[in-house]
Design a protein around this nucleic acid. Structure first.
Length: 719
DNA sequence: AAAAAAG
């Protein structure tokens, strides 16, 4: 999770100009001619070195564009979709930097990592030079504690009230002087007491750690884009949302670390979730991918832990003397569905725990448990875990949840679905964790099917339901494309997409099976592409290495299964390709959410064919809601499907319904029932309905795509 | 029938 607020309000077009999607036709789109599938082209080129962009001009995106732009409304043509996308895919040169300049990012100079845009020197907090600023700041915090933290738990404090007690000054503290401004003389708390139970004061800074934690790049962001998103917050006495991190009291440690992460403004979900959590309310929160959910729970939870101190857990440890270390009693538990996501949340927690007494830990399967145990024994106050390894740790007596006051289910709908629910109940209900109502429970996800919401209530008490945007909707910062591609054509088409992608962009390719991931990675590798893959059958070491190679750009193409669909925050993912579409719409939402994060723009291309009929309607609805272009064939298919079988709503029967691919093709393959809603585009269209207009036209022109109807040799799951 | 998550 990374985000930084940007002052500029950028239109979508402007943002596109700032991405790699902008450069003028380079070598990609110039030549129009017969389409030659990549594997029939100059194979020699791919043998030597790096074939990307070396292929003769391929007009894929031109075709793509024709097809997209033949919509009647012209705003698509002139807007971001038409030119930006099509041209941009061909090459990227250095359009990003130019784009930044053009769109008001000029002051950032070198683009993403340049800090000139921000406060160059984030006050005494940053460098640690100004220790005085610190202790004085500490005293201010304690003043707050006297009038504020003692009230904790007394019920209905309003955020407004809390701002009266001396914390207002933080509101303007964006400059260096801010940190040192507070009464240096008043140090009776911070210096004299030196109380280990007072966790609200920052520990000494550490340049090395600070460098490690905060040197990571931060991408630009445009929150304003989200500002008109409808927000639904239901539940009794819902606390008012905040507009600034300073509108609520989170204490000096959190505020300092917010500065270090260069977050300047809360995202919409943070604006709403933070005060709710600070008020100790249970929460079920739904917010779009890439909208800052992780910080939305980490900030208020950690701030409460800092304010309240270790409490019972520490007493317990003390009473158990040196043996107390053997079993750790975290104050907060965050559960995540994949190991890599757990690690990512842990890394984020480390940032906000910097200079605090809170020690975050992470445990997950596939890694050396002895090492994890040793790390736990050094102290664990906030634990991030995947369920299986946590249960293991609990059964080994290494973790006790007796004092766990804060429970977070990240990707909550996944954590409560069939595969995980028993383990979650084992952890939350059948052990020593405080019951709901005593602990505070928070759930976050971008998707939250109704039936899972109902299930989730088992774990919540008097909760607030928060939805930022419609539940399950996608960010409008993601341009979504759906293309009809038969199984046999997928690889060829994928190569075209990859060849048209800028070298600096990361492309994430999703497949449905582990086997498929291996096969596709192998194929791409032999075609000379720098790619890697991640799936659940690979060793944990390999998984983490693959993710690292991808993140760092050494392997700008990552082939992945569902393991990478949720939560992973990888900057610079410009393109998500659903080589295989998933079978449910939630998975789709999460997958494409790996791009277009925190105000950046992204592109998602999905290969659709007769195997994906089960997702037709949900996909259509999603595209419409996200204001995306909808291929007419998809509309027609949804229509057909609707009238073929009575509506089953969104049921679990994703694979049932007696609506097989074969049936479908018989009923519509001739094209007649597929009467194109755009009429005039029918020449050369008959046998290529799937490609929709322009694309199909050229794709079929050399006969290559003529066999579009041919079924692949493999069955539904590739076996 | 798949992926994921303990070993």
């Amino acid at each position: 999770m990374s985000h930084v607020a940007v002052e500029n309000v950028l239109s979508l077009d402007q943002q596109f100009a700032g991405l790699d999607l902008n450069s003028a036709d380079a070598h990609g789109a110039g030549i129009k001619g017969r389409y030659i599938p990549p594997h029939l082209r100059n194979k020699e080129a791919s043998r030597h070195g790096y074939p990307r962009c070396q292929y003769p001009a391929v007009d894929v995106y031109k075709g793509y564009g024709d097809w997209w732009s033949q919509r009647n409304d012209s705003n698509f043509d002139s807007g971001h979709g038409g030119n930006g996308y099509i041209n941009g895919m061909n090459d990227d040169h250095d359009s990003r930097m130019n784009g930044y300049d053009r769109s008001g990012y000029g002051s950032r100079g070198s683009g993403r990592s340049d800090r000139g845009f921000y406060d160059k020197d984030n006050s005494g907090w940053n460098s640690g030079r100004d220790k005085d600023a610190y202790s004085s700041f500490g005293s201010r915090g304690d003043r707050g504690k006297g009038s504020l933290f003692n009230e904790r738990g007394s019920g209905s404090r309003r955020t407004d009230d809390r701002r009266q007690d001396g914390f207002d000054g933080m509101g303007n503290r964006s400059d260096k002087s801010g940190f040192g401004r507070f009464d240096r003389g008043n140090s009776r708390w911070s210096d004299d007491r030196n109380d280990e139970d007072d966790w609200s004061k920052p520990l000494a800074p550490n340049d090395r750690v600070e460098q490690e934690l905060f040197s990571g790049s931060n991408t630009g962001i445009n929150f304003e884009k989200y500002d008109d998103i409808p927000v639904e917050a239901t539940g009794s006495n819902c606390p008012p949302h905040i507009e600034s991190f300073h509108d609520v009291t989170m204490g000096e440690i959190i505020m300092g670390n917010i500065q270090l992460t260069r977050y300047t403004r809360p995202t919409p979900v943070q604006k709403h979730a933070i005060p709710i959590i600070i008020e100790k309310r249970d929460l079920m929160a739904c917010a779009q991918t890439g909208s800052g959910k992780t910080a939305a729970f980490l900030l208020p939870i950690l701030s409460q832990i800092y304010a309240d101190g270790p409490g019972d857990a520490m007493k317990h440890l003390q009473e158990n003397g040196r043996y107390g270390r053997r079993k750790q009693f975290p104050l907060s538990l965050v559960l995540a569905p994949t190991r890599e996501l757990a690690v990512q949340i842990y890394e984020e927690a480390r940032k906000f725990a910097y200079r605090s007494r809170v020690r975050p830990c992470v445990v997950y399967g596939g890694a050396d448990i002895g090492q994890q145990i040793r790390d736990l024994e050094r102290g664990c106050h906030l634990l991030v875990a995947t369920p299986g390894r946590l249960v293991d740790m609990m059964e080994r007596g290494k973790i006790g949840l007796d004092f766990c006051k804060y429970l977070v289910l990240d990707e909550a709908d996944r954590m409560l679905d069939m595969g995980f629910e028993p383990q979650i109940r084992r952890i939350v209900e059948q052990d020593t964790m405080p019951p709901k109502g005593v602990r505070q429970t928070m759930m976050f996800s971008a998707t939250f099917p109704k039936e899972i919401q109902i299930l989730a209530r088992d774990f919540l008490d008097e909760y607030i339901f928060l939805a930022v945007g419609r539940v399950g909707s996608t960010s409008e910062n993601i341009t979504q494309k759906v293309v009809w591609v038969e199984e046999m054509d997928k690889r060829s088409f994928l190569l075209d997409l990859l060849n048209a992608t800028g070298k600096d962009s990361l492309t994430l390719v999703f497949v449905e099976t582990k086997k498929g991931a291996d096969a596709l990675e192998d194929f791409l590798y032999h075609e000379g592409y720098a790619c890697t893959s991640i799936h659940g059958d690979r060793s944990q070491r390999d998984r983490e290495e693959a993710l690292h190679q991808f993140r760092s750009g050494k392997s700008p193409i990552l082939v992945a299964t569902a393991v990478a669909a949720r939560g992973l925050d990888i900057s610079n993912v410009k393109h998500v390709i659903n080589f295989d579409l998933p079978s449910d719409i939630e998975e789709y939402v999460h997958r494409i959410g790996r791009t277009g994060r925190v105000g950046n723009l992204g592109l998602a291309t999905s290969f659709f064919n007769e195997k994906n009929i089960n997702i037709t309607k949900d996909l259509l609805d999603l595209l419409v809601e996200a204001k995306q272009e909808v291929p007419s064939w998809l509309e027609n298919m949804a229509y057909e499907q609707h009238h073929k079988s009575s509506s089953r709503g969104r049921s679990k029967s994703r694979f049932s319904g007696g609506f097989g691919a074969k049936d479908y093709r018989q009923s519509s393959g001739a094209g007649s029932s597929f009467g194109s809603s755009r009429g005039g585009r029918s020449s050369g269209h008959g046998g290529s309905r799937g490609f929709g207009g322009g694309y199909g036209g050229f794709y079929n022109s050399d006969g290559y795509g003529g066999n579009y109807g041919g079924s692949s040799q493999v069955d539904w799951w590739g076996n």
